[in-house]
Design a protein around this nucleic acid. Sequence first.
RNA 1: GGUCCCAUCGUCUAGUCCGGCCUAGGACGCAUGGUUCUCAUCCAUGUAACAGGGGUUCGAAUCCCCUUGGGACCGCCA
Length: 475
Amino acid sequence: MENKSENIKVRIAPSPTGALHVGTAHTALFNFLFAKHYGGRFVMRIEDTDKERSEEKWEKDILENLKWLGLEWDEIYKQSERTGIYTQYIEKLLQEKTAFYCWHTQEELEQERKAQAKKKEAPRHICAYRDSAPDENEINTSIIRFKNTHTGKISFEDAVKGKISFTAELLGDFSIAKNISGPLYNFAVVVDDFEMKITHVLRGEDHIPNTPKQILLQRALGFNKPEYIHIPLILGADRSKLSKRHGATSVSTYAKSGYLPDTMFNFLSLLGWRPKEDGKEIMTSDQIIKEFAVEDIQKSPAIFDIEKLDWMNGQYLRKLDTGKFAELCMPYLKEAGLLKEELDTEFIKKAVSLEQTRVKKLEDIAEATEFFFKEPQYEAPMLIWKQMTKEELINILQNVRGIIKNIDEKSWNMEELEKLIMPEAEETGDRGKMLWPLRVALTGKKASPGPFEVMNVLGKEEVLKRIEAAIEKNK
RNA sequence: GGUCCCAUCGUCUAGUCCGGCCUAGGACGCAUGGUUCUCAUCCAUGUAACAGGGGUUCGAAUCCCCUUGGGACCGCCA
């Protein structure tokens, strides 16, 4: 990739038939990285030629989530607003007799395919009507096909895969339009890529089989060929194309769960690409743009590993300053019904920050911090540390209560609490004898932040209340 | 079934183009240990791979061939 500037232009072409898929986001990201790195333009093209399946709400979801990811486009088009352009070119091919009407029924075509499978032949349709003209009735039930008279190899140089060749005859007379104003995918793509002056077609490798058809169309239309860059697919844990049965596939789901856009950007960029310097993984979007290079794109597909995503999100969450982290947690606390009017933001900030190293994604915050907002619920035996007796437990809790009662509200801070309680805990011979019951009394959980941190946030009054409740539970 | 693509630890990958520096490196995960009870963080250590078979060569993870495995596509969807 040496041709730095010369009007580089790429595009992402989603079809609004579902929510923004992780795979589409991945392709969009690579297009974006390519455009930004090589100083080109990034075009957004909504491929909504299928009127039955396209919906406005999906278009909105796709655009919104792409923006959430930080992918902004320089130009945007909608195929449904460009039908006139396609019609012109379809007419041209019809006139030149490189396209024709085919009025075979779908049943007939299906029969043909079955027969071919039986004979172990390539499934293709070489149309008997390629040189005929339909009558009035027939034209209404016809579709338009490309008259493929090419023989031999059709090859192209893929920037990641190298040379790829197909046999022209095996393609058959493929379809290009439902009717004169209803272009089909392969045709619309070729016309648009030419009209929009796309220089590099960077897309998922599932499009490799479409490429020879598109090349044939380009030749017939007299367009020049763009550069092709087919990137590896994202697979599920079972190594098949990522789909619903592997779990969440829409970007919005990850956004809602509380994965940060920076995480997604970083994580997706590392699926099928790697910077030159080995070992670099956590990178800002600017760094990724700077280091991105087509020659470092992987040839083989990558599995979407949620474990690594979680780890990475944790890394990003920890980097946030506590104010920002608390702000991001708010909607999740609210949704869980934990936010009461009288709570001050300083309290929430302190409570939430204790869990900052513990949550993998923002939605985990509600369950993790619940005990700060309401009385902990737990069974009495949970207070027992190892082989401790009930009497011992009560003595220890009463002892702590005594110490705490004597602490002045004004000197209520972590250092002070620790200074006064730790020696007592040491005194028992096993710190756990005091620290474990104390912590459980405060949080009601087997796993939580330490007792001093929690006490510091809860305040003297609430702490005494909870210790009292723990003592009561064991009487 | 046809066509095309791919092949290093469980996963993401470095190394492959320009054979020796590879007793194959890093990260996630997992395991163990350390840091005030638990958990998390952090730190340390460990775990684990060149799909198989032939060549070429003094020497192959790296080059060639075959086999095997995996995937994608085959629509009047995109």
